[in-house]
Computed example of a mutant assay.
Amino acid sequence: MEWVALLLLFFFLCVLLNLLLPQPPQSRWRRRLGRSTRRVTARLRRPAVPDPDPFDTLRLQTRLGHLAGEIRRVESARMYAKAHRLMALEAAYDDLLDEACRLAGVPADADRKRDEAKRWHEEQELASRGWSW
């Protein structure tokens, strides 16, 4: 058991010396191997997903608030073609909810039919992530 501890100590000291001592120039085949491994790892690595622009998020929240207000106004008013207007407003609201869920990182339920339950679920997911409108 003592030999394992000595072996680990030896490797630790070798790594420390490697870090402290100046490195000699690399040979041509080592540089070529390094470039090719960096290319392969770059292909295999997933591209970094940039953070969403906070102003895009703010614009989207403002649009959601505006459409929610319009839906409430149309529901409470007596007007011509009320059902048609409500369907159009709710479709626009659902599209904005989908975009907001994409920006917030909410997993998409593509197999679910668009209805009140899905809309409520998406609103709750966004609210739990700090969104308000």
Rank of each mutant, 00 (worst) to 15 (best):
T62I: 07
L89R: 02
H84E: 13
G130F: 11
D111T: 10
T57A: 08
D95H: 12
H84N: 09
L86A: 06
L44W: 15
L33S: 09
A5E: 14
C14W: 09
R38L: 09
A42C: 02
P54V: 10
E116W: 05
D56K: 12
R46K: 12
P25Y: 05
R73A: 14
D111A: 14
H66I: 07
L103D: 02
W120P: 00
P22D: 03
R119I: 08
L86E: 10
W120F: 09
S132Y: 04
H84K: 13
D53T: 07
R45Q: 11
G130E: 05
R38K: 10
R45W: 03
T37C: 00
D51G: 06
L96M: 09
P24E: 05
M79T: 14
A104N: 04
Q26A: 14
L17A: 15
W120N: 10
A91F: 03
E123G: 03
V15L: 10
A48F: 08
E90H: 08
L60I: 07
L97S: 03
L103A: 03
S76I: 03
R114H: 07
M87T: 14
P50K: 05
S128K: 15
C101E: 07
K82E: 11
P24D: 02
A110F: 06
F12W: 09
G65F: 05
H121K: 13
A5M: 09
L64N: 04
Q23G: 01
R73M: 02
D111F: 03
K118E: 12
A42G: 08
L33M: 10
M87L: 11
A68G: 07
L20H: 00
A5N: 10
I71E: 00
D94Q: 14
P22H: 06
W133L: 08
L60C: 08
R35W: 08
S36I: 09
V15S: 06
L67H: 08
Q124M: 11
E75W: 01
Q26N: 04
V49W: 01
V106E: 04
A83D: 14
L33T: 03
S128W: 06
H121P: 00
R30W: 06
R63E: 11
W120D: 13
R30I: 06
K82A: 11
Q26D: 07
L67T: 15
D115K: 04
A81F: 09
P22Y: 08
P24I: 10
L13P: 00
D115S: 11
R39A: 09
V74A: 07
A104P: 02
R45E: 09
